[in-house]
């Protein structure tokens, strides 16, 4: 508790709060998406400070990289500006959020103490993994050992979830091989556009078109 890194933590928390409030206030979607990338990067910095290097690595690559690209692409395809919503909606949202936040704050005293090696969260199964991994698997990185060996079945499930999500996106949007025809004939374009995402088969000719 007395080391200097706690001030780094405070600074990161302050920046996270500032970025989050800025996301609430802004209506320009480009700025919102960029701030979301900044938020992810700040989270990654805090993860490093919390000794979670693997998670920081993933968050920096995924949160600040891929998800920003995806959000930008979606923004380009939809709208650049969010419309202001009605004031009574803000008050309703604020009421819900304050109630939920109060409930969570009420639960805080029951949470494990921050940074305590003997807390319930840290003392049992996590420590067992730390002690058993050199005997069972002999891999230095405990996170990799738990991820791929002890909880390999779990990771298989996660991989299948990612695969399914990719499949869902392909079914919704097609594989992107389809050329956008000139916009003169919307009726002719609408029929294949509606059909292609539904079934997997129409993607076949599309692929050849993209390769040629």
């Amino acid at each position: 508790m007395t080391d200097l890194t706690q001030y780094l933590d405070y600074a990161l928390i302050g920046m996270l709060l500032a970025v989050a409030f800025a996301i609430v206030r802004l209506r320009n979607l480009f700025a919102v998406v960029m701030l979301m990338g900044v938020y992810s990067l700040l989270c990654a910095a805090w993860f490093v400070s919390l000794d979670a290097v693997d998670v920081a690595f993933t968050e920096a690559a995924v949160g600040a990289g891929i998800s920003t690209v995806l959000l930008l692409a979606a923004m380009l395809l939809t709208a650049r500006e969010a419309e202001p919503s009605k004031p009574q909606r803000h008050w309703a949202a604020l009421a819900v959020v304050v109630a939920a936040g109060a409930a969570l704050l009420y639960a805080v005293p029951d949470m494990p103490v921050y940074g305590d090696a003997e807390s319930v969260a840290n003392a049992y199964v996590g420590r067992d993994y730390l002690e058993q991994t050199p005997h069972d698997i002999a891999v230095p990185n405990i996170v990799t050992a738990v991820l791929s060996s002890y909880r390999g079945f779990d990771t298989l499930g996660e991989t299948v979830v990612i695969f399914t999500a990719g499949l869902g996106v392909i079914l919704l949007l097609g594989f992107g091989g389809r050329k956008r025809e000139p916009k003169g004939k919307p009726a002719a374009k609408a029929a294949p556009a509606a059909r292609a995402p539904k079934a997997g088969k129409p993607a076949k000719p599309v692929k050849e078109e993209g390769a040629s």
Binding site: I66, V69, L70, A73, A74, L76, L77, I137, V139, T144, A145, S148, S149, G152, T155, L156, T159, I162, F163, A165, G166, V169, I170, L172, L173, G174, F175, G176, G177, R178, R180
Partner: peptide, 28 residues
């Protein structure tokens, strides 16, 4: 085992990310 399944994860994650990107970018 760890080498093989990490390879499987690599294939799936990288190609799903690319597929998602192709799907979005193909519309723009």
């Amino acid at each position: 085992g760890i080498l093989l399944i990490e390879l499987g994860v690599l294939f799936t994650v990288s190609s799903v990310m690319l597929a998602i990107f192709y799907a979005f970018a193909g519309r723009i």
